[in-house]
Amino acid sequence: MLKFSGIDEARLKASWVSSAEAPELVHEFTSFIKELRELGPSPLRADYRRELV
């Protein structure tokens, strides 16, 4: 659906991490943050409302 709406799929990530796997969770977060930084700011941050007024 994201792709259909023109939003990069790489901006959403689902991972299955057990509560006993803290290092795994940290790794998921840090790597995802890195990936997002590379993608740059989200197009959703633009204020679409302003154009209406």
């Binding site: 792709k3 259909f4 709406s5 023109g6 939003i7 990069d8 197009p43 679409y48 409302r49 154009e51």
Partner: peptide, 17 residues
């Protein structure tokens, strides 16, 4: 689906707004 990603995004946002 035939639109490129950026066009798709603005198409939908222009509708949703």
């Amino acid at each position: 689906d035939a639109l490129v990603m950026s066009e798709r995004f603005s198409y939908w946002m222009d509708e949703f707004v």
